[in-house]
Nucleic acid binder design. Structure first.
Length: 646
RNA sequence: GCCGUUGUAGCUCAGUGGUAGAGCACUUCCUUGGUAAGGAAGAGGUCACGAGUUCAACUCUCGUCAACGGCUCCA
């Protein structure tokens, strides 16, 4: 007998060689039906794997992320099997599960697969599922593995096997398909009830652009059709919230081929919205002792040689521009920090000047590969809500914490309820990627970890994700439909002050080197507005929205009254307009709803006589009649309360 | 940058080797209306751009640019 410890701490005795399936069955039949795999001593295994010694066992179902992973991983094999049957001779790369679903990278040789093939493949997959075939794990020797794929002629699998250690190689057989795989897998394809192939993409073999590009097929599967339908609905919802679509509809921004790819043009409504965001942040920063500065959009090449950016990114930047007479070279500013270092260096500094907090909505230009450009989230010209804090090492942690406070306040004000803070550290095995001394890196990394702990942040640590000059803390938010977006960043930097020779005179009358914090709570205005659009679906908070209310006169007879209302409201800073078209009220309401205007003020005979407006709220029905003043006050209070700091 | 797909009116999209169509939006007229589309008429396009094939190209071929889905990258 062996002792099996379950997650709730209970210990049960079973015969040696018991399987997770049997354990589940001993608890309940329902559980047994739903078990997909098991976690045995922190290792996921098949639910059919015999357990030979005392162990901690967690049964994995669809409700566990690990259970989903196994489900999707097996689904990838299912898809491969179907594809192999339909397109004999194709070669397989890798087929892992991903956050939602899975993909398989496949070399289709001469065949040009398209999404028209999806239906066939889905049908074939369903057919295989219906045959209820088992998925069987088998250990093979390295030679056996090599022989199998040599015979099959799959050089990708052979390459994978080369890197594996003999004695640790497993194959999984399912129906006609055998795959090299670490596993674990479902013991049968039967639970895979709903299948959807999603998209095709090219993907380099082993992520190396010099190697062959395979065809990647993304797909997702579920144990219930209903869940697939829900997922497809979520995709639809995401499509509706696409900031590129909404940005166009609400006339916030546009792109022009003539202006150039990746160079967003802010239209009046978008520019006004962005300006409100900037003013909001400026106001917050003022209370935290920041000073605004303005720098030019270009900087001498030497500036970036000093900062180290030239050596690191010079080749991947827009080519320098040069003066016609002297041939002096300038780069379009790719970041603001070197300029800000020069602001620091513009006069001698005393410890009494520190911390010095320099802020700028600085527009920067970076060459992004053409295939990378994407709406407002990935562009070649964008404005950072940037600031650099120069401080002493004693001040570092407190300053860092204050920045965290600003970030969290912004998230709260803009209704991002969930966030994760990612601490990005240097990869200690790859030090040549970074500049600066070990000692400084150590200090910087410690400071970040300490501050994150101090503010009790929900953090994850990523090794090797640091900027080349220092570690950072990045904030990811979850939007209204659960998608994650990276926004603000805070970075500690010991290196730039050194490269720029920045100093201050301490209380000891000696020269010292300040430490720099780079930070951008929004990240960039472009990206932030994009995320805000996707988060709100274009229904911006009242204080931000381009148009807070629209007046809808019932007929032409009330246009004068409508103008009267407009004047009164405008005087009280309500952003309002009149729909004076000769359309019926129903039509005007429909259009205002589509434009996502928060309030519609319907005015006709009654309202004119009583000096009131009939208020309708976006997405709702009639919310009652108010006096003009009451409505103005209502808007003002609403705006104030959403910006209140508590 | 790479692979694949796409590019037709302001927007969403049909369409064909013989020089273009719908709906919405727009303009004008009729209608003066009470909480999600009243009616009619009109205007609007070098069919992304450049070459080539052809008697003839929006359509076929090649190139360029851009967008989209990914890959690689991201100070």
């Amino acid at each position: 007998m062996i002792n099996i410890t379950l997650p709730d701490g209970t210990i049960k005795q079973y015969n040696k060689g018991v399987t997770a399936n049997e354990i589940a069955l001993s608890i309940s039949e329902g559980l047994a039906r739903n078990v997909l795999a098991a976690m045995v001593n922190e290792q996921t295994v098949e639910s059919s794997r015999p357990i030979e010694t005392d162990a901690h066992v967690r049964l994995l179902t669809w409700n566990d992320p690990e259970g989903k992973n196994v489900f999707w991983h097996t689904s990838a094999h299912l898809m491969a099997e179907a594809i192999e049957q339909l397109y004999p001779g194709v070669k397989f790369g890798i087929g892992p599960c991903i956050e939602t679903g899975f993909y398989y990278d496949i070399d289709f040789l001469d065949y040009n697969i398209s999404s028209d093939d999806f239906k066939r493949i889905e049908d074939k997959m369903a057919e295989i599922v219906a045959s209820k075939q088992a998925v069987v794990r088998r250990e093979v020797s390295k030679q056996e593995a090599l022989d199998y794929f040599t015979k099959k002629g799959d050089e990708y699998k052979l390459e994978l096997i080369q890197d594996l250690e003999d004695g640790k190689i497993t194959f999984y057989d399912s129906g006609t398909f055998t795959d090299l795989c670490r596993g674990p897998h479902l013991t049968s394809m039967a639970p895979i009830k709903a299948i959807k192939l999603l998209s095709l993409a090219g993907a380099y073999w082993r992520g190396d652009e010099k190697r062959k590009q395979l065809t990647r097929i993304y797909a997702v599967t579920f144990p219930k059709k209903k869940e697939l339908d829900e997922y497809l609905l979520l995709l639809e919802e995401a499509k509706k919230r696409d900031h590129r679509k909404i940005g166009k509809e609400l006339e916030l921004f546009t792109f022009s081929q003539k202006v150039g790819a990746g160079l967003p043009i802010w239209l009046p409504k978008g520019a006004a919205l962005r300006e409100r965001l900037e003013n909001f942040l400026k106001k917050v920063q003022k209370t935290y002792g920041y000073q605004q500065v303005i720098c030019p959009h270009i900087g001498n090449v030497d500036l970036y040689k000093t900062s180290g950016h030239y050596q690191k990114y010079g080749q991947d930047s827009f080519r320098p521009i040069s003066t016609p007479q002297e041939g002096e070279e300038f780069f379009l500013k790719p970041m603001n920090c070197p300029h800000h270092c020069e602001i620091y260096a513009s006069k001698p500094r005393s410890y009494k000047d520190l911390p010095l907090r320099i802020a700028e909505f600085g527009t920067v230009y970076r060459y992004e590969q053409s295939g990378e450009l994407h709406g407002l989230t990935r562009v070649r010209g964008f404005t950072q809500d940037d600031a650099h804090i120069f401080c002493t090492s004693e001040q570092l942690e407190e300053e860092f914490c204050k920045v965290i406070d600003i970030v969290l306040y912004i998230f709260k004000t803009l209704d991002f309820k969930e966030y994760i803070a990612q601490v990005s550290l240097r990869d200690p095995n790859n030090k040549e990627k970074y500049i600066g001394t070990d000692e400084n890196w150590q200090k910087a990394e410690n400071a970040i970890m300490k501050a994150a702990k101090e503010r009790n942040l929900n953090t994850v640590v990523e090794i090797g994700e640091a900027a080349f000059y220092g570690p950072k803390l990045d904030f990811m938010v979850k939007d209204a439909i659960g998608r994650k977006w990276q926004l603000g960043t805070i970075q500690v930097d010991y290196n730039l002050p050194e490269r720029f020779g920045l100093e201050y005179i301490g209380s000891d009358n000696e020269k010292h080197r300040p430490i720099m914090i780079h930070r951008a709570p929004f990240g960039s205005m472009e990206r932030f507005v994009a995320v805000l659009i996707e988060h709100t679906g274009g229904n911006f908070p009242l204080w931000l929205t381009p148009e807070q209310a629209v007046i809808l006169p019932i007929s032409e007879k009330y246009h004068d009254y409508a103008k009267y209302v407009e004047t009164l409201l405008s005087e009280k800073d309500v952003r309002v307009s009149i729909d004076e078209r000769g359309e019926k009220t129903g039509k005007k309401i429909r259009d205002a709803e589509m434009r996502k205007v928060p309030y519609m003020l319907i005015v006709g005979e009654k309202e004119q006589n009583d000096k009131t407006v009939s208020v309708r709220q976006h997405g709702q029905i009639d919310v009652g009649v108010m006096s003009i003043d009451d409505f103005a006050n209502f808007i003002a209070e609403h705006v104030q309360s959403s910006l209140k700091k508590d």
